[in-house]
Design a protein around this nucleic acid. Structure first.
Lengths: 252, 252
DNA sequence: TCAAAAGTGTTCTTATTACACCCATGG
DNA sequence: CCATGGGTGTAATAAGAACACTTTTGA
């Protein structure tokens, strides 16, 4: 491996965009840097990947040290590798994002955690390194994800109202949604369990509480999204060689 | 940067899944490795990223050296970083895929290119390193991409028939599509220019030839997919504060 | 009794699916 | 004249979008 020695002089980090949702607002957990470079600038939590550590494990570690949370939604997004993005040398970074329930988040005793603070996604100014770009890429991915899978629940407390859920979608998608259509759609998926409880102590008609039916969702996934559940077009022509339907969407 | 020295001992590579389409079949360009490790196994084309080279530039270089092609569709997919994925040390790899027109591909004089061969995507057996996994991730991404954007044209020659286009979609999506519905949909997008030419020398009714209207597509993108083009619901209530519509798809 | 948010259905429009026959060419 | 793939339309169904009033609570 002699001829390749020159390539073994670089490093890589993970950076984690930790999303949370509170007060109707989508938030991201940022660290105020205590040291150079970019001292006292806000930055994404991240660290070098240890020599004997898988990438995903590094992302989990960073998250755990900061929030104390483990089994949360975590996904790799993209790797950023501009030549001069880090002043210490050649460092590329693998960006991850995770979705956590802010109510479950407890500030950790680690020194790094004391520097952490939630920021409204819409108010984040510039960040250290290329972290603003990373944040944007992760937000974009979340937007897409939330349309294709019901991951939104990862950000809500275990019991929530439909309005809270709608506000979450609105915050992520940066749109307004029609209340009736939203409810119709969300309920028609049968992934919510009506807890038969209501809010208490609110100065208006209390809302029903729901929880996410994770079991049904897993089952749903396992069946490969159960396409072709209908299967009752005609009286089943001698098990016709499946003329498949697949549509082309051209949306984002 | 003394305390971080131990982290600056790793390397990273790019690996490129180069897709092509020929004879109704989706193909990938693989290299037969001439050296250890995995000597004489098939592998994805890839190489170490040079110390002063951006990631995207490295992916372009690998592609160019192999195919002589430049301005082609190229996209980063994901980074693979299991601890022991490379026998030389800690090497993570950033996976890219590109879409090229096989008809434009000319074998390059480089020694590496002489070892290259197109393989039908459906017949690829195991590959060197974790390349099979990388290939699958890229194929999965392509499947998704082709439903959300008309990138299929990148794989076809400049002039093509609707049936060729349909076959391309079928190969990527691994389904059959209904001919009439496919044509209706594709033509309704107005992204095809009817060249008013037909095939020659075929033993059946010759098909019309089309080309992709790239200009219209760019315009389309620039207008942000021109949502809300309709805008003629009622007689425009005093420029109502846009009650936005955004739908939630729950598909893949 | 007021303010504030919860809750609830129907109509219209658009998109998707299913489906079968005639046409133009070369051999 | 036959084999091969090219080309075309319509009806049924499903999904999405628009839209407004009544209900329940606490202050």
């Amino acid at each position: 491996m002699n001829e390749f020695n020159e390539y073994f002089k670089s490093a890589f980090t993970v950076d984690n965009v930790i999303f949370g949702f509170d007060e109707g607002d989508l938030k991201v957990l940022l660290i105020n840097r205590g040291e150079e470079p970019y001292k006292s600038k806000w930055a994404l939590p991240g660290y070098f990947v240890y020599p004997n550590e898988d990438l995903d494990a590094a992302a989990k570690r960073v998250l755990d040290e900061l929030t104390g949370l483990r089994n949360v939604y975590l996904e790799q997004v993209r790797t950023f590798g501009a030549v001069n993005r880090h002043p210490f040398g050649r460092v590329i970074t693998v960006a991850y994002f995770s979705l956590i329930k802010i109510s479950h988040y407890n500030i950790q005793p680690s020194s790094i955690a004391k520097k952490a603070k939630w920021h409204s996604i819409s108010k984040v100014a510039d960040l250290a390194f290329d972290h603003k770009e990373i944040l944007e890429a992760c937000f974009h991915r979340l937007k897409w994800l939330v349309r294709s899978r019901p991951v939104g629940f990862e950000l809500l407390p275990p019991k929530f109202t439909l309005t809270e859920l709608q506000h979450l979608y609105e915050a992520i998608l940066e749109t307004e949604l029609d209340k009736r259509n939203f409810r119709k759609k969300i309920l028609s998926m049968n992934l919510l369990i009506d807890l038969d409880e209501t809010q208490e102590g609110v100065a208006h008609r209390p809302a029903r509480l729901y929880k996410f039916d994770r079991e049904k969702y897993e089952q749903f996934l396992a069946e490969g999204f159960s396409f072709e559940l209908k299967e009752s077009k005609k009286k089943e022509k001698k098990s016709r060689s499946k003329k498949v339907r697949a549509n082309i969407a051209w949306k984002d």
